Amino acid sequence: MTLVHVLRECPDALRADLRRVYGLDLDDLETGRLRVGACADLVANLPAGSMTWRRLDVAAAWTPVEYMLAVQVDQMNMWMWGNADPKKRGSKPKPLPRPGRGHAASRDDGTTGSDGREHRVRAIGVQPMTLGEFSRWRAQRFEDARVEESRPLAGNT
């Protein structure tokens, strides 16, 4: 994603994010106090959940916490559906929509973007579980064993 694309699609969200995250103004780019390359680096590394990512509907539009909450809602819907009377429960519940799905549908094989580069997509599937299993799962302590950066590197803008 290029700086030009972001400036064309959502300049107001970018202006707000630059002020909120970095304390900079987009006008600094026009006056020459902020170099274009530096601005592109800052935009490429906006944190997950930024207004810019939400407006562009990319996977980084949600924070990890929002993804985990959506998984919990999906799990609870599956649990309620699975424990309902099979004659009355209706069709299987659909998972909540996630951001960035509109862009993935336009790819040829789901892994190559329009720029020709490969994109890794991590999907969290729905797994039915009992309420006791869900309570034990929520009570456990989670730690990051491995951290992978999902945003593009500064030189790839």
Rank of each mutant, 00 (worst) to 15 (best):
R35E: 14
A154I: 10
L56P: 00
Q140Y: 01
L7V: 06
L14H: 03
G155F: 11
G90D: 06
G132F: 11
R136V: 10
P93N: 03
K87H: 10
L131G: 01
L24M: 09
R55W: 02
S150I: 14
R151N: 07
Q127C: 13
A61K: 01
S114N: 05
A16I: 06
R8D: 14
A145L: 15
L29V: 08
N77M: 14
D108I: 12
S106P: 00
R120V: 15
R136A: 11
C39T: 13
P11D: 02
L46E: 09
V71C: 03
A154M: 13
A154N: 09
C10Y: 06
Y22D: 05
A40L: 07
A44V: 03
A60L: 09
E149Q: 10
M1C: 03
M80Q: 09
V21D: 04
W79F: 03
L42R: 07
M129R: 12
R138L: 14
M80N: 08
R107Y: 06
W79Y: 04
G37Y: 01
K87V: 10
R20F: 06
A105T: 07
D115G: 08
K94E: 15
G155A: 11
K92V: 13
T112S: 01
S50N: 05
T157N: 14
R138C: 13
R55F: 04
P86L: 08
P86G: 02
H119W: 15
D115R: 05
R138Y: 06
W53L: 02
R89W: 03
A139C: 05
G90M: 00
P86C: 03
L24K: 03
D115C: 09
G37W: 05
P86E: 06
Q140I: 14
R20I: 07
L7Q: 05
V147L: 07
A60R: 09
T52A: 05
L14Y: 04
H103F: 11
L96E: 11
A104I: 14
K94V: 10
C39F: 01
V73D: 10
A123N: 12
P128F: 12
V147M: 01
A84D: 14
H103T: 07
G82I: 00
L42N: 02
E133V: 03
F142K: 05
T112R: 09
P93L: 01
D57Q: 01
R146K: 10
L131K: 09
R8P: 02
A105L: 11
D115F: 08
H103I: 11
T31H: 10
W79G: 00
R120G: 13
R117F: 12
L26C: 04
N83Y: 00
G100W: 04
W62N: 01
D74Q: 00
R146M: 12
A16T: 13
L24Q: 03
M1Y: 07
M51C: 05
P97Y: 02
V6Y: 12
L24H: 06
P95I: 02
A61Q: 01
P93F: 05
R54H: 04
L69D: 13
A60E: 11
G132E: 15
F142D: 08
R141N: 08
E148F: 10
R122E: 14
V58W: 06
D109G: 11
